[in-house]
Design a protein around this nucleic acid. Structure first.
Lengths: 257, 257
DNA sequence: GCAAATCGGTTCATTATTTGAACCTACGGT
DNA sequence: ACCGTAGGTTCAAATAATGAACCGATTTGC
């Protein structure tokens, strides 16, 4: 692994639980030498990828990532299109919706929308990592991924996030088969208790899944009628998002050619 | 300069005019050896900072920058607060509004909002680099920056973007003095012909300016009445944004304590 | 109130990595 | 067939990364 990769791996250590980190923490988590980490952070800081605030010695992500994200959006308008699609998906279903993309074997939520239709709703945070086996999004993504990806995901230890989390590979494969048939995957309380999530995959220009679109509702509100409405709206929204971002559905995908 | 900085400088080459670049172009622009650039781009790609699409060999920014931007937003909610502030600023003035931040001596627009009040409006792109001497945003930023920053900006060759661009350092300093008094800077057709922009600075936790908030209108619509409304709304909006992002106005700033 | 631990930051000889000229193959234009 | 340019690869030489030890300042434990 080159020096550049090591430096970038420091950025990968940031997540929702660790929005700020000191030098020692970065050193511990990365397993690298303190001097090495220090020099790398100094270079990352000079480039604006991280910053150290007033007096505080902790590092946090810097403004340059915003500039790059804006440019990425200019090249591939995934977020702006998603926000539009999510807004309508929310309005149609009355529930929280969110979009996530895959990177490095992980699904990360990037944006979400809330409905004001109900007093209670499922709360979301952007940049959260979703479990592949325990969320609707994860299952929707896996259902249309290659066998190697599925095998890799299901052979790893399957975390039991809640008592309801399904961790039996055989039954998970059944869920994937069902999602392949209908185009929509679901998970009931698998990631967070009391949350029933439906999700459909988003495809890239190469017809492979790049992420997922999901609707998350409290278990108590998920009636047969709402399920039907969610599934219909979700399929249309995912197809819309795929097409408007220059993607194509694979031949076997139900509903969209 | 270390290897990491060199690799990150490759990312800095991306801008609105160059959303995608091939290996040769990157090599030429960076002035580095082709093999070096190739290895660095390979590492950046492995980390998800750039990607090469199907068959096409050109590189573009990758999905990892979106994840980092979402985390930066979680730590410092500048964009989300800005979008809210810009929306209202638009509604109040009926004109296009935008927000930009400073990085490395350059002002980059990060987000904007349009009004649907008029049939015509000033068009914006995110991630555009704003001239410091020829835009309201640039002048608003400089007006509250240190003397070294102002001197550095005004001693560099001042590009004449349009026939109306003011390039006389002496008169620009007068404009800065006026902005210091009122808290709002303006530029009439200095960056793009027929665009009249007003702007106010945004301050960080250290009381130094971090960027600017601006309203851009067609010159023909900028009446005395509208100017007055824009200036009032802008001052309130900039103060609001500064405070809601944890910033503080400097002692000498008019209007805000 | 003192000692030990921890923090961010720095040094410098050793070592491993980066570097770059040259080379390869493919492709499009003339 | 020739030339220019593209992306990608090789390997000896040169340069930059590394890490143990060290420093001063806080913080923690007792």
């Amino acid at each position: 692994m080159g020096t550049v990769s090591k430096a970038l791996s420091l950025l990968a250590l940031f997540n929702h639980g660790r929005l700020e980190m000191g030098l020692s923490e970065l050193t511990r988590l990365s397993g690298m030498n303190k001097a090495t980490v220090y020099r790398m952070m100094t270079e990352l800081q000079a480039a604006g990828f991280v910053e150290q605030m007033n007096g505080d010695r902790a590092y946090r992500l810097g403004p340059e990532v915003l500039r790059l994200a804006a440019l990425r959006e200019a090249a591939v308008p995934l977020l702006s299109v998603s926000r539009d699609v999510l807004r309508r998906l929310c309005d149609e279903t009355g529930e929280t919706s969110h979009m996530s993309i895959q990177r490095n074997g992980q699904l990360t939520t990037l944006t979400h929308a809330y409905s004001s239709h109900h007093g209670t709703r499922v709360a979301m945070e952007d940049a959260e990592i979703l479990s592949l086996h325990a969320t609707g999004s994860g299952l929707a993504f896996l259902a249309f991924s290659s066998e190697e990806v599925v095998e890799h995901a299901l052979s790893a230890p399957l975390v039991k996030h809640t008592p309801q989390t399904e961790t039996d590979p055989e039954r998970l494969r059944q869920a994937l088969a069902e999602a392949q048939r209908s185009g929509v995957a679901e998970s009931v309380g698998g990631f967070e208790a009391d949350v029933h999530s439906h999700a459909a995959p988003i495809f890239g220009a190469d017809q492979r899944p790049i992420g997922a679109l999901a609707v998350a509702a409290p278990v108590s509100r998920m009636t047969v009628e709402l399920k039907s409405r969610v599934r219909t709206a979700l399929k249309a929204a995912a197809l819309d998002l795929t097409q408007r971002t220059g993607g194509f559905c694979p031949p076997g995908y139900p509903g969209g050619s």
